[in-house]
């Protein structure tokens, strides 16, 4: 009988997992948008440590 009491926190906590997961990650989205916009509008000619072209010359 007594162990039923543990179902209460479980019932409260499990939906919270789902709730956390559906939050829109605004900061990450902004970062992703900036990265795509920089490439589409070619705002940064210098590649920034990501996506180095395969035929790039050796490290300076």
């Amino acid at each position: 009988m007594k162990h039923w009491i543990w179902l209460l926190p479980a019932a409260l906590i499990l939906p919270a997992c789902v709730t956390i997961n559906i939050y829109f990650p605004a900061a990450a989205a902004e970062k992703a948008a900036d990265k795509i916009i920089d490439e589409v509008w070619q705002l940064k000619q210098e590649q920034q440590n990501q996506q180095k072209p395969a035929d790039a010359p050796a490290e300076k």
Partner: peptide, 23 residues
């Protein structure tokens, strides 16, 4: 079990906040 669950839950939002969006 409850302690483990709570620990997992406190770690989770931090992991999600740090994650990048897949592009």
């Amino acid at each position: 079990a409850i302690t483990f669950l709570l620990a997992a839950l406190t770690a989770m939002p931090a992991a999600i906040a740090a994650a990048d969006l897949e592009i």
